[in-house]
Structure formats: C-alpha cells, structure tokens
Amino acid sequence: MRLRRPRMAPSAVVWLLIAATYFVLPLYATLDFSLKKNAVGAPCCTLHNYGWVIHNGDFWHTIKISFILALETIVLSLLLFVPTIYWVHLKVPKLRPVLAFMALVPFVVPPIVMVVGLLKTFKGTPHWFYGQPWGFLATAYVILAFPYTFFSLDAGFRAIDVHTLTEASQSLGATWTTTLFKVILPNIRTAALGAAFLTLAVVMGEFTIANLAAFHTFPIFLQYVNESQGFPAGALTLLSFMITWGAMLSLLLVGRKRGARGAVIAGAR
C-alpha cells in the first residue's frame, strides 16, 4: 500500500506565503532597484551597477577583511569555547548557568557601550593588536558572538553523553586531546557548524564596533556606498547576500562528513 503524502493545511499555506512574501519582497525590490541605471523609472535592465561593484577595489578589499575577520573569530571562538564548555559539562556542571548568564551579557549590553569599554580597556596595548582589525576587532567579535557560540555548542554537548563517551575513550587508552578531537568534536560537529554560521553572519554584518573603532570593514563600505550612490548599493547588498550564503554553504560542505547525520541522531537519544 502506498503511503499518502500528508497534505498541508490551507491555513499553513497562507502563513507560508505571507512569510515568504515578507522575506522575498524586499529582496525582489532590491534586485529591481539594482538593475536600473542611476535613475528611478529608467528602462530595465542593466548590469551596470553590478559591474561597478565588481570593479570597485574597496569592495574586494573590505569584503576580504570582513571574511578573514569572520574566519578568525570562528577559529578563536571554537578554540576557546569548545574545550571550556566540554570541561564545564564534564567536571563542573554547576558552572553551566554562570556561563549561560555570561553569554547573555553581549545581548544586554549595547554594542556602543561595549566598544567604548573595550577601547578604554585595550588602550595602550601594542599597535599590532590595538591598531589592527585582526587583534582588537577580532577580540571584540569573539565577545559579540559568544551568545551564539555558547548556546549552539551547549545544545550540542547536551545532546551527547559527554561523561560516558569520555570515560569509554579514556578506558581504551585515549588522552584528553585524542578524546576531544576523535570522539567529542565529531559528535558535536553540527553544533560547531551552527556556531560558525552564526558567527560568520554576525561578523559580516557588524557595523557599530568597526565604525567606532575606525576600521574599514565591509559593512562600513556598504553604508558609505548606500549614502553616496543608491543604485550600486542595491547591487552591493545582493552581492553581499550571495557571498555570505556562499561562505555558509562552503562551511557546510567542509564540515559535512559521512556518518555525521547518524552521529547527531544517536547522540540526541
């Protein structure tokens, strides 16, 4: 007997269409705007604005900075928080609520307050740190992305039996490092990827801290173009969307491995 595919309720279809319109309409408007040549009502369609963006050196320069910053933030966050959260789950579970509270702080403290505090805190540090996005800005972004990193990784660790897996690995002769890299990390891969996606999205779109700390990142360039040239700004917005999505897709492909799905399902039991 063939199973009948469950039909979607009419009300669900309506809500889905409303939600899709909400997200797609602005993108369509931006696309429409980006295909006009420097005047509202000008005949459709031209790729002039896209050409302008692609041939703009600042575009490539700033997107490179933001992208490398995002990767650096992801690496630093994972290096810092994976062992920390692992240790907290394994040895000091009482500290978990404290970490969860700390992770909420970047949500509560406005970025403008945070950047002023950070600028004062790190004033006087060497130029390679304070004057470079790879130092100061990456540090700020690790803090800014902490809630996303923490809650993603925490959910991953809670879905597996950290104690038993660790003890099983150790009884077979594995060291802490081997246990972390061969047993724990592969089983929280999905959570780590989630943390990486969110961090990438946060860093690629962060404006306040970069602006106040006077670093020239991609959102700063986007804002500058938006203020000075409206039509290319539309093309720039769509291109940045595509680049960010492309980056996320690459992360997904790099992080995906045979058996990963099974690991998540089994771990979540």
Partner: peptide, 30 residues
C-alpha cells in the same frame, strides 16, 4: 596511573559506542 594507562577494558551501563564511528571503527579505536 590514569585511566588511559591502566589497560582496563570497560563496558558501561549507558550505551557508550562512539556515534560517529561504525561498529568496526569502534572496536578498532583502542
């Protein structure tokens, strides 16, 4: 002497196989 140096094989109450490895890879791990 740490647990990884004791040469004690252990079977746990909870299912303890490494979810990211096949049965063969689990047995091969040690």
């Amino acid at each position: 002497v740490g647990p990884n140096k004791r040469d004690m094989g252990m079977v746990f109450q909870a299912y303890s196989l490494f979810p990211n490895m096949t049965a063969r890879q689990n047995v091969e791990f040690g």
